[in-house]
Every structure is written in C-alpha cells, then in structure tokens.
Write a protein that binds this DNA or RNA. Structure first.
Lengths: 203, 203
DNA sequence: CCGATTACGAAACGACCGTATCGAAAAGGA
DNA sequence: TCCTTTTCGATACGGTCGTTTCGTAATCGG
C-alpha cells in the first residue's frame, strides 16, 4: 500500500529550512529575506527548497503560520471580559511577529511589515489567500459562537449581528496595525469592546 | 531668481508615464506591472523613469494617489446618513482600483490585490507610509470633526470617542477588503453604521 | 543485483529591479 | 561662441526570483 518509492526526503531538512527561514525573517525583515540566502545557510540547494515551497511567499507563510498557535475564547459568563481577552490574544500573536532579535535598534519596527506582506501574499497567491482566510474564519467562528451564546442568554441585544461585531473589533485591530501603524495593547482592546458595547446613541 | 539651468525636462513625459503605468496597473495587476515594460510602452529610457520615481512602488503609489480624489463629508444634520455616505465614498474609491479593463474574466479580482500591495508598499518605504497615513489622517479628521459636531448637539453619547468610532467603521471596511476579500457595498456600510450606533447591550 | 523512481546539489538561465556609466542633446550664462 | 548644467537614451551590471537541466545518490520492486 505504501507506494513511497525512490529516495526518501531527508527528514531533517524541512525543519532546518524553516528554522533558518524564521531567523532570517524576524531578524532581517521581509525584503532582506532571501531564498538563496536561506538555502545557503541551511546548507541545501535552492532546488531542494523550491521542491517544498513553490514561492518565497509560501515559505514565509509557512514560517509565520507555525508561530500562530491555536487561539481560545473562554466563556466565563462575562462576554466583555472574554472578548477583550480574545482580542488581546490576537494582538499578542501579531506582536510576536516583531523583531525577536535580541535588542539593538527598535526604530525599524517590522511587525507591521510582516503582517502587511502576509496580506499582500494572500492577495497574490490564491492558495495562500484561502489558507489565511481559513485561519481567520476559525477565529471568527469562535468569537461568533461565543457572542451568540451570550445573545441566547439575553446578555446582548437580540437584533445585533455577531458577525458584524466581530468585523468591527477585528477590523479596528488590523486597521491599526496595517494603516495607522499604532501599537496595540490590552487598553486599546478594552476601549474597542466597550465602545462597541455601549454604542453611540444616547440612552 | 529662476535658477533652472540645464536641459529642461520634457513636460509631457510625466503624464505619459503615469498614463501608461495606470493602464498597466489596472489591466495587468501589480505583479505584471513592470518598470521595463512601462518604460518601453511610454517610449522612455528606464533611467528617465527612475529619475522621477525612486522605486516601482513609488510609481504605483503615484498612479493610485492620482485616482483618489478628495472626499467630502456632509453635515445634513443626520449623522447616520452622513457617515453612511462617507463610507460609501471610500468604498467607491477602493472599488475604482478594480480592473478598469473592459470586461473579460472577472475571476481574478485585483481590487484587493492593489490595496494590499499599497499597504505592503507603505510598510516597506517609510516615505510612502507617511504619505498614505497623511491621506488617511485627513479623512479621519473630517469624520471625527463631523461626529464631534453631532456630539455637541447631543445626537450621540457624550462619553463616546469619535476616533474609536472611526477606527471601528474604517477598520471593518479595510478588514473586509484585505482579509475576508468580500465586496463592499452601501448595504454593508449601512449595517456597520447602524450596528455601531445601536451597540450590543440591550436597552 | 538491476532497473525504475525519487531526492539532491550544482549550475545555468531568463525576467525583473535598481544602479552606474557614457555620450548626446538642450538649455542658460559669460 | 564656448562653458556649465541638466536631461535623456543606451547599455551593462549585480542581486534576486523562479525554472530548467544534468549528474549523482538513495530507496523500492522484481
């Protein structure tokens, strides 16, 4: 049944390439993240690398994807606190794409750069697009389920749209990272959730 | 006083290059948008082109920037309607970056691609980043001023943060284009504004 | 053991980006 | 007119991406 013929792949190269690629990506940034350079440091031929990932974007996505662990959303009965915590988790995952390099110049922050390149890569390659979208859909579904549970208990308005709420919250998060470039902390997440909860109309 | 010495620049080349670049960008997409190709079609040397725009990204930004005309926000007394109209204008500007090419295959939608590449370019080059950020700041300031005017009249809650509201609305807009890839129409803008107005807490 | 199959490394290639160099052209100033 | 300054076109270059080719190595099936 096992039709694996021919020379087997070196079981170590995948991990070795990904490790080197991760180092280069976080230390040098996306533009300096070079396929030839990664291959040279990893000690493999470029063809070996391209046999595993079709483009440089795919390799970068594979690296970043490994760093995005599963995100949980709790149900403590306090929807506000649970949402804030959820957004803080996402923000932490984004901040983790910052320069892991030990110190030196903080002036060139690459956290926005990596996420921006990820978005661009998703727009360039359809398969990466669906990949990224699947990751986001999972998280969105989690949050939506949590909100709907709260709605069934009467914690939120019955005519509110959970999907829309998630769009607002997550949207503001990524808008801040990609466009305005401002940092994201728990304080901002709290403001966002509170604003969405209260609405703008006078009561 | 006019210290312009030496051979003057051809007054037509700027416009000619921008025109050709715009055609290529909208018809072929960003990846197929080639400096050499643009230079060849425009009938200029590549050096002539690089004397005006330092990188391919800068040329693309110049093209897209020309297509983003000024956006107005009305004050009809109805904040909800004015905000919806404002967002519809932004959405229209984004949709205008779609394939202006007459017809053919709609399957590869490049509207998300161009905006995504714009965001990535802003992350790559600091000057483009400030350029784009200035454009957004103008629009944000407009909307914030409009909201604050409404707040002074008691149309919205006095403890609400106009900046946060704009972040929510604009964030959801760009989140939709960049991440989920879903289209943006006036209906969605209406839903967003209504949701932000009502809040999620039961009254 | 032998052929088929697959992985690997080395090298070259075309396309593209951005830079550098050079000579010619077009203007102003002396 | 001659010199300086700036633009322009042509060409070549190094770096990078992704592909192709080729010879070699490793494993399986018969």
């Amino acid at each position: 049944m096992n039709a694996r013929r021919g020379r087997p792949r070196d079981p170590d190269t995948d991990a070795r390439i990904l490790r080197v690629a991760g180092e280069q990506l976080l230390e040098r940034g996306y533009t300096a993240f070079t396929v030839d350079h990664v291959a040279e440091i990893a000690g493999v031929a470029k063809t070996t690398l391209y046999r595993r990932w079709p483009t440089r974007d795919h390799l970068a996505i594979a690296v970043i994807g490994r760093g995005q662990e599963e995100i949980e959303i709790a149900d403590t009965g306090d929807l506000r606190a649970d949402l804030i915590d959820f957004m803080a988790q996402i923000a932490a995952g984004l901040n983790r794409t910052r320069r892991a390099g030990r110190g030196a110049n903080d002036q060139d922050d690459q956290s926005a750069g990596l996420v921006a390149e990820l978005v661009a890569a998703a727009a360039r390659h359809a398969d990466i697009g669906t990949l990224v979208r699947d990751l986001f859909d999972k998280r969105i579904a989690l949050a939506v389920a949590r909100i709907e549970a709260a709605r069934r208990r009467g914690e939120v308005r019955s005519d509110s749209d959970p999907h829309l709420l998630v769009d607002q919250l997550a949207g503001a998060l990524y808008y801040r990272i990609l466009i305005t470039g401002k940092p994201i902390d728990r304080r901002y997440a709290t403001h966002l959730v509170d604003a969405a909860f209260a609405g703008v109309l006078p009561r």
